[in-house]
C-alpha cells in the first residue's frame, strides 16, 4: 500500500512541469528574488515606480513631471463622476462605500467563480443602477479608476487565492504570462523578466515586479489616460498577437496573476509613464 502511494505521488510530481508544482507563495518568493537580484540597488518598495526605479536618468525627468502630474485632470474628472448621482438617485458610493477601495481588487469571487477587477466592478455598479456601461480602455472609466486609485494610494497589494478554482485561474494567468505568442514570438516575461533593464531602441524595459500597482496610467505615448487592460492589448498587438477583449477572462486572470506577484508592495496609482 505504502509502495503504491509513493509511486503514485512520484508519478504525480513527475507529471507536473517544474513551473506548475510550486505554490503561488513559492512562485512569488522566487519572482521577487529574481528581480531584487537583477536590480540590487533598487529598494524593494521602489519597484512600483517601474522603469524609474532602475534608471537614474529617466527618473530625474519623471520626478519633474510628477510636480505637475499629467493625471491630475483625470483624478478631478473622476471625482466629479463619483459625486454625480445616477438617474435613479444612487451613486458609486452605494456600490463601493468609499473611493479608497482599490486595494480590494482584483479578487476571486467564489460564488460567480471569476476574477473581479476594479473596472469591471465600476461597470457592474453602473448597470445595476440602470446606467450604460463604459468602454474599458480609456475615457470615463480611466477617470473614475484614477480617482479611486488616488484615494487608495499607499494601500498594500494583497491578492488572495481562496480556493482551488481561484488557484486554477491564477495558474491560467501565469501560463499566459510565460507563453510566447504572436508572430514575433514573445512572452511577457521575455521583455519584462529577462529583458528588464534592456533597451528596445531608446526605451528601457520595466521589470514585471511592481507592474500593476500604478494603474490607471497617463502614458505620454497615448497622450492620455488608459487602463491596465488597454496596455495589455497594446503589448499583445506589439508582438503581433491578436489582443483579447478588455475585461475578458484572459486579461482578468492575467491581472490576477500579475498583481499577486506584487503582493507586499503598495498601490501607487494613478501613474505617469513614457
Amino acid at each position: 500500500m505504502k509502495k503504491l502511494l509513493l509511486t503514485v505521488t512520484a508519478v504525480a510530481i513527475g507529471m507536473t512541469g517544474v513551473g506548475l508544482y510550486a505554490s503561488p507563495e513559492t512562485d512569488q518568493a522566487a519572482f521577487v528574488n529574481y528581480f531584487t537580484k537583477k536590480f540590487p540597488d533598487t529598494p524593494k518598495e521602489d519597484f512600483v515606480n517601474g522603469v524609474y526605479s532602475i534608471d537614474a536618468a529617466s527618473r530625474e525627468q519623471w520626478i519633474e513631471i510628477e510636480e505637475f502630474p499629467p493625471y491630475e485632470l483625470a483624478i478631478d474628472a473622476g471625482e466629479e463622476e463619483w459625486n454625480t448621482a445616477f438617474a435613479n438617485g444612487k451613486g458609486y458610493v452605494d456600490c463601493f462605500g468609499e473611493p479608497g477601495v482599490r486595494g480590494n481588487y482584483p479578487y476571486w469571487d467564489e460564488s460567480r467563480k471569476e476574477v473581479i477587477t476594479l473596472e469591471l466592478a465600476i461597470n457592474e455598479c453602473r448597470e445595476a443602477n440602470g446606467e450604460k456601461p463604459l468602454k474599458y480602455k480609456r475615457g470615463k472609466i480611466a477617470d473614475i479608476s484614477a480617482y479611486m486609485a488616488y484615494a487608495s494610494r499607499g494601500e498594500p497589494i494583497n491578492v488572495e487565492i481562496p480556493n482551488d478554482e481561484a488557484l486554477a485561474a491564477y495558474e491560467r494567468g501565469k501560463e499566459f504570462y510565460y507563453r510566447k505568442r504572436g508572430q514575433l514570438n514573445f512572452s511577457c516575461f521575455d521583455c519584462h523578466g529577462g529583458g528588464a533593464g534592456n533597451l528596445v531602441r531608446a526605451d528601457k524595459l520595466s521589470p514585471a515586479y511592481g507592474h500593476t500597482s500604478h494603474f490607471p496610467v497617463y502614458r505620454s505615448k497615448w497622450g492620455g489616460m488608459g487602463t491596465l487592460h488597454r496596455r495589455f492589448g497594446g503589448c499583445n498587438g506589439q508582438v503581433r498577437a491578436k489582443s483579447f477583449k478588455a475585461q475578458g477572462p484572459e486579461y482578468r486572470e492575467l491581472e490576477y496573476f500579475l498583481t499577486y506577484m506584487s503582493n507586499g508592495l503598495d498601490y501607487n496609482g494613478p501613474g505617469a509613464r513614457k
Binding site: F31, N33, K174, N185, F189
Partner: peptide
C-alpha cells in the same frame, strides 16, 4: 507555436 510552447513555457518560471 501554441503546441511548441506547451512544452516550453513552464521551464521559464523563476
Amino acid at each position: 507555436q501554441y503546441q511548441r510552447e506547451g512544452n516550453l513555457w513552464a521551464a521559464r518560471v523563476p
